[in-house]
């Protein structure tokens, strides 16, 4: 059984002649433990695809099976719960909480999952240590470089041991060398059995990943 199975998933904004077909009915599956890249130009539907996979948006039609469970038509509360426990999201501009320390940032998803305080702090420290920031737990995001911020974001995404990591242009705000370091972390995670789905428009990463999905005008043109 595939970790992720999309069956005829589509997303249409608006209706009638003005309707925009951001994503046309698509079948897709992602196996556990793979590093997948979604390529496409701006407006190709790759962000819509990521929103679908991340349960941030509801599909117009079709089924989304995550670990075999259809999550396409759940209530907001259930979808929030799945986002919390099963999905780890990494953003292009990190989206860290600037008022909180990086430790607190990593704790945030665990708070939503109701992890006990002591356990939460322990795991957050462990995860930050693992991305090389173990000595800076009390620092605020503004005291860190872009690459370090993205490492915090990765630690945060891993907090609740999600089934899949979704990364939206994770290297878009970083220089080439730092970007490569982030990709390196993803490689390590995949080697440990994690599943990473990364949206990017940078064709250079084609050789880095195990699987490529390419979108064009809302259609999957390569997979």
């Amino acid at each position: 059984m595939s970790l992720i199975q999309l069956q005829g998933i589509s997303r249409v904004y608006g209706s009638g002649p003005a309707a925009v077909h951001a994503l046309r009915p698509t079948d897709l599956s992602v196996e556990e433990g793979t590093f997948v890249a979604i390529f496409g130009a701006s407006g190709s539907g790759k962000s819509t695809m990521l929103n679908m996979l991340g349960l941030l948006d509801e599909p117009t039609s079709g089924n989304y099976l995550l670990e075999g469970r259809n999550v396409a038509k759940l209530s907001d509360a259930d979808r929030s719960d799945i986002r919390c426990r099963k999905i780890g999201i990494i953003f292009q501009s990190f989206n860290l909480f600037s008022h909180f320390s990086i430790l607190e940032n990593v704790c945030m998803p665990m708070r939503f999952a109701g992890v006990p305080r002591h356990e939460m702090h322990e795991r957050a420290a462990e995860l930050l240590d693992r991305v090389g920031l173990g000595s800076r737990l009390a620092h605020s995001p503004s005291q860190l470089s872009g690459g370090q911020c993205q490492r915090v974001a990765i630690a945060r995404a891993l907090a609740n041991r999600p089934a899949v990591l979704l990364a939206d242009e994770p290297t878009g705000n970083l220089d080439e060398k730092t970007g490569d370091e982030i990709i390196g972390i993803f490689h390590e995670l995949v080697a440990e059995g994690h599943t990473v789905v990364m949206v990017t428009h940078n064709a250079e990463y084609e050789k880095e990943v195990q699987r490529i999905i390419e979108l064009h005008d809302g259609n999957v043109v390569r997979q």
Partner: peptide, 16 residues
Amino acid sequence: TKEIGTLRALGAQRRT
């Protein structure tokens, strides 16, 4: 707004 969006993406419930 962006902070709220991030919280929601990380799994925060509406009531939170």
